[in-house]
Design a protein around this nucleic acid. Structure first.
Lengths: 138, 138
DNA sequence: ATAAAATACCACCTTTTTGTAGCATATAAA
DNA sequence: TTTATATGCTACAAAAAGGTGGTATTTTAT
């Protein structure tokens, strides 16, 4: 496993919202578009708003919209925030004591692997996704 | 989550065996050294031998030893094999239909991220770990 | 032969993750 | 002010992952 379902869903939701023309999305609409289980999605959207990515509007024409400029949100940040940032710090072998001074046998390789991966993910913001989408449809 | 416990344990076991001087290891010994739950470890070792990384010897002085030269086993291969290789192929959004021709919005970035990560992991074999360990203790 | 020390198999328990249900609350259109 | 359509909260159910236990089987030192 690389990412769990919840993280996958989070990326799918925010990615979809980013490349879409609309700017407010109801849970029901996103459920229909993304095939994420209705109730689970609603809870996830609530969580994402608590985490500061989106904000919710209640009432008849309510829904969810981005809380911050798209350029400020990169993919690594989404993953780290949703998963609770056990990403950068964690040792591949799960050792508590694995640090630079007293590294595990795989420390060096794992550090390089995750650094490279996170570099790629931090280099892409939701704004970038939107631009790419635009470029394609031209 | 990046890797699940089972994968973490697999890397810990094979990594430990690789850098150690011995060449046969009982489950009980590995349990003691690595603090992996006794029974779970035994099942895991059975699995790892079915997957072809190690081979088991029954009986009084039995245990587990590598089935192949250390230089042939790299870290990416361990992860892929243990996790069932949903690693390279998988779409970050979990889409079945996500391919080069019809990519999801994050396809490009995700491909780069996982490629970079797997590059680093495939570049390190168990033999490399052993050499690094030796170099340090000199 | 026999007992010790190892793996192998099968079923079950616990914890975490994922998914569901009901009801409460808020808001805007009519 | 009523009603339709949203989200919010709390608790629970199902599935997957992680972990345990008992017993059988294999092998080798004694």
């Amino acid at each position: 496993m690389i990412l769990n379902k919840t993280t996958e869903y989070s990326l799918a939701v925010l990615g979809y919202m980013a490349v879409s023309q609309d700017d407010i999305f109801s849970a029901e609409f996103l459920h229909h578009e993304l095939k994420i289980p209705r109730r689970y999605l609603r809870k996830l959207l609530t969580d994402l708003s608590k985490l500061g990515f989106i904000l919710s509007t209640k009432g008849r024409n309510g829904g969810f919209a981005f809380a911050r400029p798209l350029g400020e949100i990169n993919l690594a940040a989404i993953i780290k925030t949703v998963e609770g940032s056990e990403l950068m710090e964690s040792c591949i072998l799960g050792h508590q004591s694995c640090k630079e001074e007293q590294p595990c046998v795989m420390h060096e390789t794992w550090l390089e692997a995750k650094t490279k991966m996170l570099e790629a993910l931090s280099n892409t913001t939701l704004h970038d996704l939107r631009e790419r989408k635009k470029a394609k449809s031209d």
